[in-house]
Nucleic acid binder design. Structure first.
Lengths: 222, 222
DNA sequence: GTTTTATTATACGGATGCGTTCATTAATGT
DNA sequence: ACATTAATGAACGCATCCGTATAATAAAAC
């Protein structure tokens, strides 16, 4: 992807490229501007010109880094997914009782999903998946599947520690995360503007707690 | 909405309107064509001209019935929601054991949600909600909230019949439907093309059954 | 200075599409 | 026949925007 540094095969041992060097910082700035436009007003409504303007960059520069508008969109999605990966990898659930750990996981998950940017990202991404299925898989691998693995792993550890008794931890993880999202997930995606209340979802605490209750009532080892 | 029949206040007792009558069938045809375009390729990608062509109608006729493109979209959404209401009202869950009834409900729900048209409808609707929150509420009232009420009602009846013991049936309904959708809901929205397998979701049966199992393990009255 | 490359500003060709206008034709009544 | 309204077809003004091209400027090495 970045083989522009070794410009010519016949070049001498001098690694330095000739002429004005590429401003590497600009790519990230462009991607950030693209993220802002694409996931706030959508792919079709966004224009390369406005993205370039927001990035403080010429339109031609954008085209020099990204072949086409769709390529820029795909790159922006990839970038967001990379950010998501990082955010989800820090999420090492701390100690406490199994109930506390599960509730903590659930509340973290809700807080993560109910963010305004996340809602908009999901919305605009879902539409473009129809036109470009790869970006959908990119997101699934970076977000949901990763979260699911993390929860499954948490359950596995609890099973090994003798706290829970579960045959199929992956199935159990799917059930728990499904309950945590619940009907509220639809309200999140189709309901009135999200970012009006400070708390992402006022009923989240109750929902997560009762979900964990129901979960533990069956799986707790006692 | 249809006060064009009583054209003039000063008109005589003759109810019949003057001149060529409006072809009332055309509105439905236009809405159907609009549905096809809007929910397959999206609002921005759809053009009034192509919708009119698909409907076998002049572009001007479309503008005569619907003031603007956005109004046409909103009307198409309303129409789809009306269809959804009808489809969901027929869903009188038949008899059988409580387990059978819940599994039946779950499988019907999955079959309904996993349809290709439903997936695309959700996708394209969710994006436009950002620009027009009303249509989101229209959908929520016609679909998810209605489904939730139906399930809650089913649970209420089972509680009254002594089959289940539940404090908060609405919360319980939310948990059950959440488990039924599970992680697969995300695969549905962001995964590879849906309509390749005949069965909507190959793991649906297992997921629904285990969800009902977990549900009944806590709430069954025995 | 010169050379080389990156970047900008500007303009262009080509296409699309909304919403409107106008003249014409079609379908009803009287 | 006539009057009246619906609907069509075609064109228009206006705007947006992708992707490209061109001339000028900026930043580095020599």
């Amino acid at each position: 992807m970045s083989d522009k540094t070794s410009a010519s095969i016949k070049s001498t041992a001098s690694n330095k490229a000739l002429g004005r060097p590429v401003d590497t910082a600009k790519s990230a700035i462009i991607l950030d501007a693209a993220r802002h436009e694409f996931f706030n007003i959508g792919f079709a409504q966004s224009s390369i010109e406005s993205i370039a303007a927001r990035a403080g960059v010429s339109k031609v520069t954008v085209y020099n880094r990204f072949k086409t508008k769709e390529a820029l969109f795909a790159a922006a999605v990839g970038n967001e997914c990379a950010v998501m990966r990082k955010a989800l990898s820090v999420e090492a659930t701390a100690g406490g009782s199994i109930r506390e750990r599960l509730v903590h996981f659930g509340m973290e998950m809700v807080a993560f999903l109910w963010r305004d940017e996340m809602v908009r990202f999901e919305r605009h991404l879902a539409v473009e998946v129809e036109h470009n299925p790869e970006i959908g898989l990119l997101f699934l691998d970076a977000g949901p599947r990763r979260l699911h693995q993390a929860l499954s792993h948490l359950l596995d550890e609890a099973v090994e520690a003798g706290e829970l008794q579960i045959d199929d931890t992956e199935q159990a993880a799917e059930h728990l995360s499904g309950m945590i999202k619940g009907l509220a997930d639809l309200e999140r995606r189709f309901g009135a503007n999200i970012s009006q209340a400070k708390i992402p979802d006022p009923k989240a605490k109750k929902r997560v707690n009762s979900a964990v209750d129901l979960f533990l009532k069956s799986y707790r080892n006692d």
